[in-house]
Structure formats: C-alpha cells, structure tokens
C-alpha cells in the first residue's frame, strides 16, 4: 500500500513487461519532442527569432519616431496621415519599428505580401504582448530589449495588433493595425 512502508529490497524487483514497453515509448516520445524543435528551425520558416539587442527605452522611442518621420504616409499638406490617432507608415522591405506603450501600438504599418521585414519590437514602459490577429502570432515586447523578428507576411488583408500582456487598466484599449497588400 502506498501509505505503508514498502517491502524490503523493493528496488530489486524487476519491472513488468507492460511497464518496460510504456517506458520505452515515453522515453522515445520525449526525445522526439526535443529534437522536433531544432528540426523545425532547420527545415521550416516559423520560428521565434534569436536576434535581440539591449537598448534604452528612450533610444528605442527616438528610433521609432525617426522611422515614422522617414516613412510616414503624407497627405497633400505634407503631414503624416493618421488612423485612430496613430501615424500611418508604409516602409520599404527592411527595418521596421513597432513601439508598445501604455496604451498604444504605433505606428500603423502598411506592408507588402511576400517582402521580408526586420521588425524591431520593444516597449518604452512596461511589458506588452504583440499579438497579430486573426493570423494569431504572439511575441513579447520587453522594455530595454530590441527584439528583431524577420517577418514575411504570407497572407494579405487587415490585421490587428492586440496587446495580450496585461499592461494596466487601459490594457484592452491597446489595439494597433497592420495592412498587408
């Protein structure tokens, strides 16, 4: 009984066949589960990136502002267009900045399907969750870290960036947008 002292020399009892077979299967499963991860990195294209840099939130904030100035979509008067109070940016393939702050994702991005972008993801205050919906891709935006994700949109349409890491009472109002065409 499991609540009483076991018989002497319990460790010498051999395992039954049923246990041995299951143990072998379970161990193999564990090894396969482990190897699946490097395998996917080598063969497939959906992997959390490994590239990141330490960066001061102020520096990242300024870099995002420069990015918005450089590639902002201008109206006739030369001012940067806004949607939902957020600047709209149409960058060429290459470096793109996504800034999380309480309670706003900026800028609104206009991307091209099939082009590769180096998305620099960070936050300038607390943690935020970078969640692209409805495609359902989720990454963490961490202040002090510039997380570089090499992203190639493979579907076109309208996508929301939902914040899915609790960041304060206005958390649910933090929605940004990506257009892919």
């Amino acid at each position: 009984m499991s609540i009483f002292i076991p018989e002497k020399h319990w460790w010498r009892d051999p395992l039954d066949k049923d246990e041995k077979v299951w143990l072998a299967i379970a161990l193999t499963t564990s090894i396969v589960l482990t190897l699946a991860m490097p395998y996917w990195h080598v063969t497939q294209k959906q992997n959390p990136g490994s590239e990141y840099y330490k960066i001061k939130p102020d520096t990242f904030d300024a870099a995002t502002d420069r990015f918005i100035q450089q590639y902002g979509v201008k109206d006739e008067a030369g001012a940067i267009k806004q949607e939902g109070g957020i600047d709209v940016v149409a960058p060429p393939p290459g470096d793109v900045f996504v800034r999380g702050q309480q309670f706003k994702w900026s800028p609104v991005l206009k991307l091209k399907k099939g082009s590769e972008y180096r998305i620099h993801l960070s936050s300038i205050d607390v943690l935020h969750g970078f969640s692209v919906q409805p495609i359902n891709m989720n990454f963490e935006a961490v202040p002090g870290y510039d997380y570089v994700l090499k992203v190639t949109p493979t579907t076109s349409g309208v996508f929301n960036i939902v914040c899915n890491e609790f960041c304060g009472i206005g958390h649910h109002t933090m929605v940004g947008r990506i257009y892919v065409d």
Binding site: M37, W40, Q46, G129, N138, N164
Partner: peptide, 12 residues
C-alpha cells in the same frame, strides 16, 4: 511548451 508552437499560444 514547444518552442515554435508557442507562437500561436503565448498569452492567448
């Protein structure tokens, strides 16, 4: 808890 699958799971 699989590295890549976590992309479609994290914080949902």
């Amino acid at each position: 808890g699989t590295e890549q699958l976590n992309i479609i799971v994290h914080n949902t």
